[in-house]
Simulated assay, not measured.
Amino acid sequence: MRLVRAELLKIRTTNTWWLFGLGAFVLLALSFLVNAVSAHFIFKQATDVPPNASPEQAEQIRAAADTLYQAANLYTSGQFFGLLFVTLIGIIVVTNEFHHQTATTTFLTTPHRTAVILGKLVAAALMGAGAWLITTLLTIPATIIFLGAENVDNHFGQWGVIRPILLNLLAYVLWGTLGVGFGVLIRSQIGATVTAVVLYLVGTAAAGIIFSLLQQWLKWDWISKAQVIVPSIASQLMISGTELPGNPPQWVGAVVLIAYAVVTGFVGTMIVRTRDIS
């Protein structure tokens, strides 16, 4: 626990946390605004299904128009960019040691490298949980007010809403640990942060395009479901209030993220145990 407190102190006493926090708050507000505008038009046109839509597409449109689905989406607004900031914090927890050349002091003070990495993993997970708590405390009242203005049941307290909110917590915690693992693999602070941002933003869009093209080309139904192997898409699947037709269940997304976190955490620990500091 002393190691965990030390890691939290390193973040808390620098400008990193409030710079990331400010950026996350701005993007949270924009995400909620986009989700609210989208929900407003969906509520007004809930039954409008394009005449050329296939039966499965029509079912997906009706399921997405469900008030419970939209409520869960609003309660978990900001997840996409919030997870990116949590990942970057996890990366900095590791790369700061090499960027400021304090890794030698850290490992001399605590010669058990596994304990050091575990401390960083726990600290990153706690920071992820803190980010989830703050964003959730902001989105819950905002969603209740918005749905009340739309004369729609807010569904707060129902399992279909509580489950996505709790799974959102799991996503924030796991992405914090993923950031630590990523930082171990790429020790350069600039290299790790830039690579993570590009992979997260561009990789998510590219994966969606690739899987869509493969689906249209090969006509295999399972290809579209296989998108869940992309971590950011798995995170989005976890927080859906209801299961959309043609999509895997929410627990699949949780399993995928847990697997990524376990593998990166284990590999990162093994690398630190065997690799020279310099």
Results as ranks from 00 to 15, higher is better:
residue 3 L to T: 07
residue 4 V to Q: 06
residue 6 A to M: 14
residue 9 L to S: 11
residue 9 L to T: 12
residue 12 R to A: 15
residue 14 T to D: 12
residue 15 N to G: 15
residue 16 T to F: 13
residue 22 L to F: 14
residue 24 A to D: 12
residue 31 S to W: 04
residue 36 A to V: 04
residue 37 V to P: 05
residue 44 K to A: 15
residue 47 T to N: 15
residue 53 A to K: 00
residue 54 S to K: 08
residue 55 P to N: 09
residue 57 Q to S: 05
residue 67 T to C: 04
residue 69 Y to T: 15
residue 70 Q to N: 09
residue 71 A to G: 01
residue 73 N to P: 00
residue 73 N to A: 13
residue 77 S to C: 02
residue 83 L to R: 00
residue 90 G to I: 11
residue 99 H to Y: 12
residue 100 H to F: 15
residue 105 T to A: 14
residue 114 T to F: 10
residue 119 G to Q: 00
residue 123 A to H: 01
residue 123 A to Y: 01
residue 124 A to K: 00
residue 125 A to P: 05
residue 128 G to W: 02
residue 137 L to Q: 02
residue 141 P to L: 05
residue 142 A to C: 05
residue 149 A to M: 11
residue 156 F to T: 07
residue 157 G to D: 07
residue 172 Y to I: 12
residue 172 Y to L: 10
residue 174 L to M: 12
residue 200 Y to F: 15
residue 205 A to Y: 12
residue 207 A to C: 06
residue 210 I to D: 04
residue 211 F to N: 02
residue 213 L to Q: 13
residue 214 L to W: 13
residue 221 D to A: 12
residue 221 D to T: 08
residue 227 Q to I: 11
residue 230 V to N: 15
residue 231 P to I: 05
residue 239 I to E: 09
residue 242 T to L: 14
residue 244 L to Y: 08
residue 248 P to W: 11
residue 257 L to C: 01
residue 267 V to G: 11
residue 268 G to Q: 12
residue 276 D to N: 08
residue 277 I to D: 04
